[in-house]
């Protein structure tokens, strides 16, 4: 089976600080891959470098067999590689429904000109309805983001990514702010995504969630991959326990 996403030796720096130090990672079609690591390990920076939000200082990214080098952020999204933000970043002046619609529509110039005189009905309503249903946002469709809880806002971010019908979603801590119950429900829905043709790279601190939904997990620390394998292997990995799981226990 061909790889959907193939990242080779990705490097991201902030000035002199190396946040992502030659990380390689791949996601196959239909996979849910976890990317975990302690705070400041470089997970968000990895996503930023991958999607063009930060310049890549080295390495190579291939998506569906084509290079993403030099592609602008919007173009990466249009290729079907879509991300969410750790800091949510919703459109605060639009309702939840509109947040999803605007992601699904992407009007072209012709539409933009026609909308001046004869506005079209919304396109992509099916995609929106699907994304909304998956994230159980039907009740809040007409609310504004600021009226929602943090957990719900994160879900809107996920739904907005899904409304674009991506091939692969990079989720940066989507379950932060959800309680255990909600997190379990979210995990079940996440698990169903490959059935809809959407693969997932999941970044999260909720170990229960990550260990239960992922086919494969990659662990990074200080910008370097320290382990990768199935959830069982990760659970048993000495290096991971030392660097990460122990740390989690200590924090709680």
């Amino acid at each position: 089976m061909g790889q959907l996403l193939e990242v080779t030796d990705l490097r991201v720096t902030y000035g002199g600080v190396v946040a992502v130090d030659d990380v390689s990672l791949h996601v196959a079609e239909g996979e849910v891959v976890g990317l975990i690591g302690p705070n400041g390990a470089g997970k968000s920076s990895f996503i930023d470098g991958l999607t063009g939000y930060l310049p890549r200082r080295g390495g190579h990214v291939e998506f569906e067999g084509r290079s993403l080098d030099g592609l602008a952020t919007y173009a990466v999204a249009r290729r079907g590689l879509v991300r969410t933000f750790q800091s949510v970043e919703l459109f605060d002046d639009l309702t939840v429904e509109e947040n999803l619609l605007v992601a699904a529509e992407r009007p072209r110039l012709v539409t933009m000109l026609r909308d001046l005189v004869l506005p079209s009905r919304p396109e992509g309503v099916d995609d929106v309805a699907w994304a909304r249903m998956l994230c159980e946002l039907d009740d809040v469709a007409h609310r504004y983001p600021q009226e929602l809880s943090h957990g719900q806002r994160k879900l809107v971010g996920v739904a907005r990514a899904l409304a674009q019908r991506p091939r692969l979603v990079l989720m940066d801590e989507p379950a932060a702010g959800l309680d255990t119950e909600e997190s379990l429900a979210f995990g079940r829905r996440l698990r169903s995504l490959p059935g809809h043709g959407v693969s997932v790279l999941l970044v999260d601190h909720d170990m229960g969630l990550v260990l239960s939904v992922c086919d494969r997990i990659v662990v990074i620390d200080f910008g370097k991959v320290i382990a990768s394998g199935t959830p069982e292997e990760i659970r048993a990995d000495e290096a991971v326990i030392a660097a990460y799981l122990g740390g989690v226990d200590a924090r709680h």
Binding site: T51, Y53, A72, T73, Y74, A77, R78, V82, R83, T84, F85, E89, L90, F91, D92, D93, L94, E98, L101, V102, A103, E105, R106, P107, T111, M112, D115, L116, P119, S120, P122, E123, R160, A161, Q164
Partner: peptide
């Protein structure tokens, strides 16, 4: 649709580019 896109750009250019 265009209006939503305009407002999206006003709200958050970063996020706007993330939805293509």
């Amino acid at each position: 649709a265009t209006g939503r896109m305009l407002v999206a750009v006003r709200s958050n250019e970063r996020a706007a580019s993330a939805v293509g």
